[in-house]
Amino acid sequence: MKQGLLAALFIARKDLRTEFRTKEALNASVSFALVVLMLFSFAFDLGREEFYDISGGLLWLVYVFAGALIVNRSFIREVPNDCLDVLIASPMPPWALFLGKTIASFVLLLIVELISLPVYGLFNNLQWVHAFWPLFGVMTLATWGITITGVAFSAVTVNVRLRELMLPVLHYPLLIPLLVGAMQVSTALIKGEASDIMQELRIVIAFDLIFTSLALYLIEFILVG
């Protein structure tokens, strides 16, 4: 088990190292986030006060669209040169490979989110700094849910035609309960009315627990078959 966790960290480090070298996915993701933010500004012509009611919702829409670019690439990185075969043939257990890649995607997506948040606040004249730490907590929990399911689907669609089209169709519907919870908690936090968010938070945590265990258990079937 310890060997597995160590292997997971090696894989996470490898993914992060290659990504920071090229920054392809990071750049694309941040750019996409900015474009979506801009589009929202055109789409919604709300007054400052009314905007607070949808602040959490829009924030997570930005995150989930930009996040797709990061998460979808996860297993696709292993396809050139047949690296995936070498990883699976190694003594590393399949769940360790999966966990490592999830950790890497998690870190990358969190970075994109932290960059987008101030820009979001700026464009929409939103006061969010007062709620940063609780917001960061929600971001961490919900981003884990997005990445663990996204990386699992990335493994599923490695050999699928039209995988860029498939992933949103498969992934987004699954995320809806997670996003509903995250959006409501975020809106409440930004508005400063966070007295009773425990129930929504519980959904986010339940999502994380259920899908983390399910994905870790089923990943062997996906990778080795």
């Binding site: 699992a152 498969l170 699954l174 919870g181 409501q184 959904i203 339940a206 079937f221 996906i222």
Partner: peptide, 28 residues
């Protein structure tokens, strides 16, 4: 074989999601 395996995985994921959906929508 891959098609069957991936479909099975997807069906299980979808089923696991349904109770969460019901919880989330009810709360919403």
């Amino acid at each position: 074989t891959q098609r069957a395996t991936m479909s099975a995985i997807l069906a299980i994921f979808a089923a696991a999601d349904i109770p969460l959906v019901v919880m989330a929508i009810r709360l919403h």
